[in-house]
Computed example of a mutant assay.
Amino acid sequence: MIPHDFILDLLYPLPIRTKKMFGNVAMYCGDKIVLATRQKEENPVDNGIWIGTKIEHHNALKKLIPELRHLETYKIKKWLLLHEDEPNFETRAQQIAELIKENSDLIGNIPKPRKKKTI
């Protein structure tokens, strides 16, 4: 099950692929990780839509979407959160999806390649 799966409809027709990450569902567009969604009973303070971005883009994104904030439970600095309890949650999610569809530089990170384990 993908929490907040309506975001996939908002991202259509982009070729989004999903993958489990930290018990969340990460969403990739091409090589970029753009979003992750979370909805868990434990630590609900970080439930919602996580936006993969760079620290230097935080201020610009917060200016566009003032409801964005840093994660609290997970001290991952690059990600911003649109909390699921925000009154404008779906409207702001749509705004985030539009930025992704426009290929905005504000959203998305190319993950570092995993190191192969040697035995």
Rank of each mutant, 00 (worst) to 15 (best):
M1R: 10
M1G: 13
M1H: 11
H4A: 08
F6W: 10
I7D: 01
I7P: 03
L8A: 14
L8G: 13
L10M: 13
L10Y: 12
L10V: 07
L11V: 11
L11W: 12
L11H: 07
Y12D: 12
Y12R: 11
P13W: 10
P13M: 08
P13V: 03
L14V: 04
L14Q: 04
I16K: 01
I16W: 01
I16N: 04
R17S: 09
R17I: 11
T18H: 00
K19H: 08
K19V: 00
F22D: 01
G23S: 03
V25Y: 09
V25K: 09
V25T: 14
A26G: 14
A26V: 02
G30F: 06
D31K: 15
K32D: 12
I33P: 03
I33E: 11
V34Y: 11
T37M: 15
T37C: 14
T37R: 11
R38L: 03
Q39R: 09
Q39A: 09
Q39Y: 11
Q39L: 12
K40V: 09
K40D: 02
E41I: 08
E41K: 14
E42W: 06
E42Y: 12
E42Q: 11
N43Q: 13
N43G: 05
P44R: 04
V45D: 07
V45G: 02
V45I: 02
D46M: 06
D46K: 06
D46N: 03
N47D: 03
G48H: 03
G48D: 01
W50C: 03
I51M: 02
G52N: 06
T53G: 10
T53M: 04
I55G: 04
H57M: 05
H58W: 08
A60K: 13
L61Y: 04
K62D: 06
K63N: 14
K63T: 15
K63H: 08
I65W: 02
E67I: 03
E67F: 01
L68N: 00
L68C: 04
R69L: 01
H70D: 09
L71E: 05
E72R: 11
T73I: 03
K75F: 09
I76F: 13
I76P: 03
K77F: 07
K78W: 10
K78D: 14
K78P: 13
K78I: 05
L81M: 07
L82R: 01
H83R: 09
H83L: 04
E84R: 06
D85N: 15
D85K: 14
E86N: 15
N88A: 15
N88I: 07
F89D: 05
F89R: 08
F89K: 06
E90F: 09
T91C: 00
R92Y: 12
R92A: 07
A93P: 01
Q94S: 14
Q94V: 00
I96L: 14
I96V: 12
A97F: 00
A97S: 04
I100A: 05
D105C: 00
L106W: 01
I107C: 06
I107N: 08
I110M: 11
I110T: 14
P111Q: 08
K112D: 05
K112L: 10
K112N: 06
P113D: 07
K116I: 01
K117S: 04
K117H: 01
T118F: 10
I119E: 13
